[in-house]
Every structure is written in C-alpha cells, then in structure tokens.
C-alpha cells in the first residue's frame, strides 16, 4: 500500500491502462499540454504523446460524439469533461448515442467508453458550476454510473470502468482530488456495481457516495459519542445500484438515511428510499429519510451556499429522528 491523492489515483489508473492496452486514449479540453484543468492528467502527454492524449477544442457535444464513434471502432476512449456541468452540451451523445447503441443494434455494437470529470458541488462557483449529476445519469439504462469517495476506489473503479465493455459515467469530485488515501500497490481493480460497508453498525444505516461519504463518516463519529452505532455504506455505484447490500443493512439496522449533494426531487435518495420501502418494509422501524442539497440553484454567497448543502449536523439530526432519540 502507499498513500496517494485521489487526483494521482485517477492519473495512475489511466496511465496503467494506457500502458496495458494501446486502444485506450484520453481526450478532452486541456488534458494534454495543460495536464488537466484540475491537474489530473499530469505526465500523460509526456509518456504517451499527442496521439493518445488529445487536447480538444471547447466543443463538448462534438468531442463526446467523436469519443463514441471511436468506441464504435473498438477503441477505448476516456473522455474527460473539464466538469460535468459542461457535459450538458454533450448529454445527447451520452444518453442517445452511447447508452442506447448496444440495445438499438440488437447487441451488434457495444461501446467501451468512459466519460469522466469532476461532478458535484464546488466552492462558491454558483449555480451553473456547482451541481450533482448523479441522478441524471443513473436514470439511464445502458450507462453504468460510478462515484468513488477515496483514492483506492478512484483507482480501482476507474480501472474497472476503462476495461468495461459498456459506457461508464465516472463522477469525480473536485473537492476530493486533494484527499489522500492508501492504495494497493500494483494492479488494483474494483468491481463495478458493488457498495461497500465502510463502518459496520447496528442502529441506523447511513448511505452516501462520493464526497457525501465524508459527511456521513463525520456524522457517524458524532452519533457514536451520543450512543448511536451507525452503519455507513459507500454506494460507489449509482447504476447498477447494489440493492442487496442496502437491503441487507436495513435488515440489521431497521433504519436508513440517505445523503446526497443533489436535489431531492427524483434523486438517487428517492430511489434508495423506494427500494427499501418496497422490498424491506417489514424490516423498517421508522420511515426512511433523505438528506439532500436544497431544492434551489446553487447560490454564490458563502453563507447562502452553506444553507444549500447537506451538512453532517443535518445527518446527525435526521439519524436521531429515525432512531426516535434526542440529539
């Protein structure tokens, strides 16, 4: 094991897969000479050259489509969006071209492609640059959607995504790039579609993913001091959703709170709650609850922005609600 940042873990996954398989290449805005707007692709141009680390014009719909077309020919493109906010220009290619082609062709044409970049809230960049697209893409059959929290999963899940035969939406988090963690030495491949119990507990299940896991771990620590033993699940994959791990946890704890940065309406938390209610109703001792971002476009001013974000204090309060205890 060695300690590296999430940023380095993502870079290492790409570099190792590019060494292993010459059909893997990286394209996007500022990925080559600038080494990534968030410095994720450091060193890749130098090692692999401009044919495999391709700076694109600012042309998201176009280069997303170019990536999908290249995947039609059997290449394994990694398409970086400078942020997922800008991928709205390209969502047609992701949803209508990438996700559906295998099905529309009766299985004749699969698309091994990864779309990746920072997603979620950032610091004081206001409504158009600070939002969570997890629910948007998790809605779409034909996509796999991954949102890692720590450095080991960033590397293991990205490696798996690059090797996967289907399109993967890989949602990184700008505010996690600098976080460090232990990553296994050598090849490290995680399994897509599997949640992970980060902290076992008996009293309540707290489920989140990406940066939300950090909030939930903080909340679990505080709850422990208050006598509540929370189980923390890192979902890791929003599609497919690891329903078995969620339901198994609820069978043990009988209570669940989901935590997400995104908006509440039709969010991932809504899907989690619906799953638990439909499939583990008899195990529940309290109504499942959601903590989410506020149902507003993200405001700029720091104190307003703080009001729009899910906080660990909120998670603690809601956990007490479902445990019928006082915080």
């Amino acid at each position: 094991m060695r300690e590296i940042s999430v940023r380095e873990a993502i870079r290492d996954a790409m570099a190792e897969e590019m060494r292993r398989d010459e059909s893997v290449f990286l394209m996007g805005e500022e990925v080559a000479e600038y080494e990534g707007a968030y410095k994720v692709s450091q060193g890749l141009l130098k090692e692999f050259g401009p044919e495999r680390v391709v700076d694109t014009p600012i042309t998201e719909a176009g280069f997303a489509g170019v990536g999908v077309g290249a995947a039609m020919m059997g290449l394994r493109p990694i398409v970086e969006f400078m942020t997922w906010n800008f991928a709205m220009q390209a969502i047609d290619q992701i949803v209508n071209s990438a996700a559906k082609t295998r099905y529309m062709s009766g299985g004749l044409l699969g698309l091994p492609i990864v779309f990746r970049g920072p997603n979620g809230v950032a610091s004081q960049v206001a409504a158009q640059h600070s939002q969570d697209y997890g629910a948007w893409y998790a809605h779409v059959p034909g996509l796999k959607v991954v949102a890692p929290f720590d450095a080991a999963d960033a590397k293991g899940l990205l490696t798996a995504a690059i090797r996967d035969p289907d399109p993967v939406v890989f949602l990184e988090h700008e505010l996690l790039y600098g976080e460090s963690g232990q990553v296994p030495d050598g090849e490290h491949v995680a399994e897509l579609g599997r949640a992970r119990v980060v902290r076992p507990g008996r009293d309540v299940t707290l489920v989140s993913w990406s940066r939300g896991v950090s909030l939930v771990l903080d909340a679990a620590a505080e709850l422990a001091e208050q006598g509540i033993d929370a189980e923390v699940i890192d979902l890791r994959s929003l599609r497919p959703l690891d329903r078995a791990t969620l339901l198994g946890s609820v069978q043990r704890t009988h209570r669940i709170v989901s935590v997400e940065e995104g908006w509440p309406s039709c969010g991932v938390g809504a899907e989690i709650v619906a799953t638990v209610v439909a499939e583990a109703f008899d195990a529940l001792d309290a109504p499942p609850q959601r903590v989410s971002g506020a149902d507003v476009p993200m405001p700029y001013a720091a104190h307003l922005e703080a009001l729009a974000l899910p906080l660990s204090e909120t998670v603690v309060r809601v956990a007490h609600e479902v445990c019928y205890t006082d915080g």
């Binding site: 280069f63 997303a64 077309g69 020919m73 290449l75 290619q93 209508n96």
Partner: peptide, 23 residues
Amino acid sequence: YGGHGIVGAQVPLGTGIAFALKY
C-alpha cells in the same frame, strides 16, 4: 455503423470513426 435518429448526431460519431481509423 447506423442508423441514428437524432438529426446531426451521427456526424461527430462518423468523425470519431475517422479518428479511430487514423489512430
């Protein structure tokens, strides 16, 4: 390679196919 229903969307796809041919 299709057979695409969104007007114009096949043009970047074809361009990506050409990218792969050159690659």
